[in-house]
């Protein structure tokens, strides 16, 4: 009985060690702070406009993103420019 207990303890120790040192898939999770950033039009230097200026620059037509926007949490289909 005591030998059984020792075996179980040893197994648990081994399991705990392996589990604590094991690297999780995806690597370490770094905690990032909130930040604010902006993307200017790289062709004409204008700021990004909301009304007809989200996906393509409202002033010179430079394409910010190639995808078509669909309804999301804060973005709507109508925001496609």
């Amino acid at each position: 009985m005591a030998e059984e207990k020792k075996r179980i303890q040893a197994y648990l120790e081994q399991l705990k060690n392996k589990v604590e040192t094991q690297e999780n898939y995806g690597g370490e999770i770094t905690n990032e702070e909130a930040r604010m950033d902006i993307r200017d039009c790289s062709e004409c230097g204008a700021g990004r406009a909301y009304h007809k200026g989200l996906t393509a620059c409202a002033y010179c037509g430079f394409v910010f993103m190639d995808t078509k926007l669909t309804d999301g949490v804060n973005i709507r289909k109508e925001n496609n420019s």
Partner: peptide, 19 residues
């Protein structure tokens, strides 16, 4: 999320923290 600047109307991208 895009946040509109109340002064110059440009779209700033706000990235929230991991928390």
């Amino acid at each position: 999320t895009y946040i509109t600047c109340p002064f110059c109307q440009s779209q700033n991208t706000f990235s929230p923290s991991t928390g």
